[in-house]
Design a binder for these strands. Structure first.
Lengths: 241, 241
DNA sequence: TGATATTTTGTACATACGTACAAATAGCAT
DNA sequence: ATGCTATTTGTACGTATGTACAAAATATCA
């Protein structure tokens, strides 16, 4: 059950009455799942928000899990494609520092807006992934593992190339932190205010991206923990305070 | 409903049969909420994991929300206290670079293990906060707002003092990213493997902390976006591809 | 001890859930 | 129009949910 505004749902439903119910259901589910989590949203909630009958959801997607799966199917392809394009372009940047920044941007940008794709749902879909990740959703975990792993490796490789002195392990850690920061930024609504619909970088999403890129590039450039001194010196550095 | 292992729940229940049911319920709820989200876990799940009767949950905490509230009440105090102590110590570090690192460590450490407090639940509680934040849980949002805001401001002030040339806004952004990275690290179980019970920094939690501190310190030290103009050359960089 | 308060159990109720399915409707070729 | 398929509706079923509440068990203390 959802406690939010009762009026918005009907408005939204009225806005796009019946041109394509299937799409409306997908959009509504995406929005509701990404702001409330999977289990907090009922099939009836989704149907109502889409101006549809609960039965329609079963008809189009068979089960609630099937609906979630279809949302992922819809977005993963385009987003990965966009990322690959941007990454390829970034790889061609000569200056190593500039290249690193371009790579990070190539990773971050599609997460905020997947370009020309589905109703500016880039940020919404990323928010969804963040929530599903936090909830440990199995359906999401599986599809992400088999869809994003290749792309992730490509990014890590590219970053590693532009930072050869940093061990791969640490690059993995820092990419992990980047993803966490990205997720949290999109999940916390009062910070990146709305970014609403339309694929544009409207709102202060642009600023959020720049802040994230700047901070992340610096974090990648941090000296590695295990100093690659002559032999592998492994001193226990700082006192634990 | 939860699909996980059926055996573990009963084992755990048998382990601490009846010495303090109330505590057992709290611990079970913490564990289940933090790995599955709030709505995915039923009162019956919690009761079973704690070896208790569903009615006991109602008796001790009145409602499911009440149970969540009590979990927060239990942890917020000690964790904030620990953070304040570590922050105070960090502020006394002379060297600005070292001080920044100490401050970041003071923020991160209690999130992984709140010292001598409740059954090493530091990481577990942080994971819980991460999940509740992702799910937009209202109960959690309220109590966090009125409990953590002061501490957060103190940290931002301290960081600002050791980085006077970085505008406060950017420090806020970067703290935000830190929190996101921290949350995501604790939410993703295959990375920081288990850290299980016991307040010790066992497992590779220690490594995770060091990685996070190193990356975060560097991100704080990144040049701000709005250049105050001194040395740093900042051309209007790359084409947007 | 027995009385009294606290805790735990067992059960029951109303509601909300996911999904199935037959009936009704709309879309569209012929 | 007619027939046929795809979609949408309405409804119903079994189950799981949060919580209430009386009864039983246990602890506390004169």
């Amino acid at each position: 059950m959802i406690r939010k505004s009762t009026s918005k749902a009907t408005d939204q439903a009225a806005a796009s009455r019946k041109p394509n119910l299937r799409e409306a259901i997908l959009a509504a589910a995406e929005e509701l799942f990404s702001t409330n989590g999977f289990n907090a949203v009922s099939v009836r909630d989704i149907a109502q928000a889409a101006g549809a009958n609960p039965g329609s959801v079963t008809y189009h997607f068979k089960t609630k899990d099937g609906l979630l799966l279809e949302i992922y199917r819809r977005h993963c392809g385009p987003m990965n494609r966009r990322r690959s394009e941007l990454l390829a372009a970034a790889r061609r940047v000569r200056d190593l520092q500039d290249r690193l920044e371009a790579i990070v941007r190539a990773f971050v940008l599609p997460a905020f807006s997947s370009g020309s794709d589905l109703a500016g749902g880039g940020a919404r879909f990323t928010r969804l992934r963040a929530v599903m990740s936090a909830e440990g959703n199995e359906v999401a975990r599986k599809i992400i593992a088999q869809t994003f792993d290749d792309t992730s490796h490509a990014f890590i490789d590219a970053i590693h190339e532009s930072l050869p002195h940093v061990p791969r392990t640490e690059i993995v850690w820092r990419s992990h932190f980047l993803l966490g920061a990205l997720y949290y930024t999109l999940v916390t609504p009062e910070r990146v205010s709305r970014l609403s619909r339309g694929s544009a970088d409207g709102g202060d999403a642009g600023n959020a991206i720049e802040q994230l890129v700047r901070a992340t590039v610096a974090s990648f450039q941090a000296p590695p923990l295990d100093q690659p001194a002559p032999a592998r010196r492994r001193s226990a550095d700082h006192p634990k305070t």
